[in-house]
């Protein structure tokens, strides 16, 4: 179907060949050559000055002087001059070498020839013969028992590294669906670890909270990564929630998982005017008044809402655990 014999079309012109070599000033005029030599030497000397600057800044300059650089702003002088010294010392070696090559080394172009990579026909045939003879000598063709058992053994050996990697981590079990929030867990401020009363939050306020630690418990980053919750207080009449979700709020206070339902960033930006929560990672935007419905961006699900109530001492607590997994989706996640 495809052919190798495209006729090479006749070129309309004949190749004039490599243009005649034009001599540089430095080739013909010894004075110009001498001058170029001096220029190269000057470039190398500038490099040496750079090294001196580097040594000086490293050894003698104090580390807490700051200078103002246009565009860049305030810059640490020691780091700046260390860097400049190093830059000068390297850059001018390079400049000198290139200038040397350009001005003084012979600039005649030379021609080398190419050969096709394909081996000679006879070599190719010999190669095939050698391989066949080798395979024949090993008896691969005849001794199918060896071939098959070797294949099986090699396949099984492949299991070893796979198995060895098994202990990289535990199995997830149902970890992805669980958080530390239980019925009755107090909400505490982060930072501060203080329990919160509804009166601590004014209308329009937003606060990041975590579940209260039981005595002896430590808070790890992996807990924060699932437990972080945002408390927001708006006027109760602004909610557009169904009866169940409304019952999860308390006097206009509503709680959502702070871990983005898209890819898990912290949904940190709250716009008081519009009552929108915005995730800075990919700009998924959630409407607080409508149970964090996604109104913009790539997230496909609202932020899970945490049901709130007041305990006997008047502190805000979780009425129940989250009813759905928090954070990004995963294969085993069951519920829309």
């Amino acid at each position: 179907m495809t052919t190798d014999n495209h006729s090479k079309e006749i070129a309309p012109l004949s190749d004039p060949g490599i243009p005649e070599h034009v001599h540089r000033r430095t080739d013909t005029d010894p004075k110009a050559a001498k001058k170029a030599e001096r220029q190269v030497a000057i470039l190398f000397s500038i490099s040496a000055i750079g090294t001196i600057l580097f040594v000086y800044s490293y050894t003698f300059m104090s580390g807490d002087i700051f200078v103002f650089l246009p565009v860049m702003g305030s810059t640490n002088a020691k780091q700046l001059f260390l860097g400049l010294g190093m830059a000068i010392s390297l850059f001018f070696i390079g400049l000198g070498a290139v200038h040397w090559a350009k001005m003084l080394m012979p600039d005649n172009e030379i021609i080398a020839h190419r050969h096709e990579f394909r081996s000679e026909e006879s070599d190719r045939e010999d190669f095939v013969k050698t391989v066949k003879a080798g395979a024949e000598a090993a008896g691969l063709g005849r001794r199918s028992l060896i071939k098959r058992s070797l294949g099986a053994a090699l396949g099984l050996v492949g299991l070893t590294p796979l198995l060895l990697l098994r202990d990289l981590g535990p199995l997830p079990k149902d970890d992805f669906t669980k958080t530390s929030w239980k019925a009755g867990t107090r909400l505490v401020t982060d930072p501060g670890n203080r329990p919160i009363k509804p009166s601590d939050l004014e209308v329009g306020a937003v606060a990041q909270v975590l579940p209260e630690l039981q005595p002896g418990e430590l808070r790890k980053l992996e807990n924060i990564g699932k437990d972080a919750v945002l408390l927001i207080r708006i006027r109760p009449e602004e909610f557009q929630l169904d009866a169940e979700r409304l019952s999860w709020t308390h006097e206009g206070i509503i709680a959502f998982s702070k871990i983005c339902s898209h890819m898990g960033c912290a949904v940190a930006l709250y716009e008081q005017q519009t009552k929108h929560l915005l995730c800075p990672c990919h700009q998924s935007t959630f409407d607080v008044t409508r149970a964090a419905k996604v109104i913009f961006g790539p997230s496909a699900r609202p932020l899970p809402q945490l049901a709130l109530m007041i305990d006997a001492d008047g502190y805000l607590v979780a009425k129940q655990p989250f009813t759905e997994p928090v954070g990004p989706s995963f294969w085993e996640r069951d519920s829309a």
């Binding site: 830059a87 850059f91 070696i93 390079g94 000198g96 290139v98 090559a101």
Partner: peptide, 12 residues
């Protein structure tokens, strides 16, 4: 020479 130029440039 060009290596030194590139290195000098990144140092800058």
């Amino acid at each position: 020479g060009f290596f030194f130029i590139v290195f000098g440039f990144t140092a800058f």
